[in-house]
Design a protein around this nucleic acid. Sequence first.
DNA 1: CTGTATCCCACTGGATACTG
DNA 2: CAGTATCCAGTGGGATACAG
Lengths: 114, 114
Amino acid sequence: MENNENCKIELDDIGFVLKVLGGKWKLYILTSLYFEKKRFKQLERDVIGISPKMLIKELKELEAVGIVNRHTINTVPITVEYSLTENGLTLKPILGQMKQWAVQFKQQLKSDNQ
Amino acid sequence: MENNENCKIELDDIGFVLKVLGGKWKLYILTSLYFEKKRFKQLERDVIGISPKMLIKELKELEAVGIVNRHTINTVPITVEYSLTENGLTLKPILGQMKQWAVQFKQQLKSDNQ
DNA sequence: CTGTATCCCACTGGATACTG
DNA sequence: CAGTATCCAGTGGGATACAG
């Protein structure tokens, strides 16, 4: 298969990732959930700047695609726990690579300036 | 260090990545350039749906942060080649993981529907 | 606490045409 | 070919208040 074919396929795959994880907030939410299950309010605090409207919207989308799980507990007032599904856990390598790259690239920028 | 501290740091790192690679088009452009250096028009064709305005804007941003290199050649008409810098090449693991996850997750969706 | 509903504006970015 | 300029619609998403 020629190079350009490979390129198109990979562009397609990246498009798929962007469709699922794209947007302003999803990666933040997933990063937070990656550490442990969180309640709505906890997520709102973790993801600085997000409004409840956006938070619930993103959570619903992530739930719809099967990456996030929503679990309600009948307390008063109601408690809701969000967690990663098994499919959600497969994102670990992506988030891990991003984190690693960030650390590495920040370091690079620093030494460039010296 | 406690868990929540780690979470905040990682959220910060993800934020950095999003600042550099976020938006609608950058990952497409980088994916395309990852295969080989490309001319402006070639990128316009690869990244389906992008307008020249957006393409040049994203390229300038990527150039500013030192991920993409712009090289002009004095032909008539002028030729411009865009390529990844050494720093840009360090993105390979991220793109690779994304691609791999896309393939894997699409497969998962397929078998869920059966 | 966990969301919903509205109002509304800034900005992204699409379409198109044009220049060097 | 490689970009620039302009015009403008759509909408992402902020602020705020409210409901269950």
